[in-house]
């Protein structure tokens, strides 16, 4: 397989050429291409997608389609990884635990943030929706995150965020990780109310906050 194919695949993925990208990925894997390297090409393509989203060239649709293509290719590549003995897991920078807080079932915003954090290189542990304090605490114990991200769309989320952050304080010192909140009508007043460390208006804010907190 030539290096041309590598670049072509990255380009097709980044340009949202779904059918052509999937066909090429399949053809490359069928010809013995290293599946780990394939996943790495996907990551490179997703970095371009993220940059275009940040530049407002891409929107929610492109992120969703990128996610779909990534899932498809991972599905093709992963079973081959053990088989071909390729090694070397990608290096993760830091871990972020994320979830939509108790009482709220909305996840579109949380999913965008998760996607953008993943392509920025973070290991993201997504706890889903309607997550109570105990589940956040268990995930903090298990994953030792650098950042905990609380998402909420409804106004009831303000109280939930406050309660969850209070529970963190009761259970342990908050020194080990930073807390960011976002979603719906969350603003600086809500940050103050919940005593989170920061709030973000969008996924780019979330990535910037994590980068500023985890920079060496």
């Amino acid at each position: 397989m030539s290096n041309d194919d590598d670049q072509r695949l990255i380009g097709l993925l980044a340009d949202m050429e779904e059918e052509a990208a999937l066909a090429l990925a399949r053809q490359m894997l069928d010809s013995g291409f290293d599946p780990m390297r394939m996943l790495d090409l996907c990551r490179q393509a997703m970095t371009i997608v993220g940059a275009r989203y940040e530049a407002e060239e891409y929107f929610l649709t492109e992120l969703m389609l990128a996610g779909e293509m990534l899932t498809e290719i991972s599905g093709m590549a992963r079973p081959l990884i053990g088989e071909r003995g390729a090694g070397g897991a990608a290096a993760h920078r830091a871990c972020v635990v994320i979830g939509t807080v108790k009482g709220d079932l909305h996840d579109i915003g949380k999913n965008i943030v998760t996607f953008m954090l993943e392509i920025a290189g973070y290991e993201v542990v997504d706890l889903g929706v309607d997550v109570p304090a105990q589940r956040f605490l268990a995930a903090i114990d298990a994953h030792k995150p650098s950042v905990v991200a609380l998402s909420g769309f409804l106004t009831l989320a303000f109280d939930s965020m406050k309660e969850i952050i209070e529970a963190f304080q009761e259970a342990r010192s908050r020194d080990g990780f930073k807390i960011m909140i976002g979603g719906g009508q969350v603003d600086d007043r809500v940050r103050e109310f919940t005593r989170a460390d920061a709030f973000g208006r969008n996924a780019m804010d979330a990535v910037s906050l994590c980068n500023s907190w985890t920079a060496a």
Partner: peptide, 9 residues
């Protein structure tokens, strides 16, 4: 009138 103002203001 933002929700945050009515709730936390």
């Amino acid at each position: 009138m933002s929700g945050s103002l009515l709730i936390a203001g």
